[in-house]
Amino acid sequence: MRVMHALIFAFLLVLPVAAAWAISDPAEMLKDPRQEARAEAIGRQLRCLVCQNESIEDSQADLARDLRQVVRQHVAAGEKDQQIIAWMVARYGNFVRLRPPFEPLTWVLWASPVLALVGGALVVAFAMRQKRPPPQPLSAAEKRKLGDLLKS
């Protein structure tokens, strides 16, 4: 029952978004191109909570638009990137960060490239150490052939 409701809920929120209204209002952009670029970079790290797998910069959801505005206000007020992201995390949790923080929970995640390489190297090292069956001794016929070849 609850799942049903959750689905209806999700559906209704997501539907208008799926129309891919890929445009934003130019009025919401910051005048200073350097600040605007910074705001965009921050926005790309923040996950839209309605459409979920897009950043708030890409999303056309109403909430994403509001959050874009919030980011721009904070950028204009001269806040650091870290402060703005912390502001978002305080409200929406780590869910909002598309780049997960480095903390005990994500150690394995961030270490995954190194772990994968080390694992691969270990497997190779193990395989190289494997004893290979010694080459088969030559059969009598082969020996004779070899002898002929060497003589000629």
Partner: peptide
């Protein structure tokens, strides 16, 4: 392995630690 870990990590974080995290393009 990295792509697989990144894609499924939020699931297992949720399952094992009850924590919500996102792993995205960055």
């Amino acid at each position: 392995a990295v792509v697989f870990t990144g894609t499924t990590y939020p699931l297992f974080a949720q399952l094992l630690a009850g924590a919500q995290i996102s792993v995205g393009a960055p």
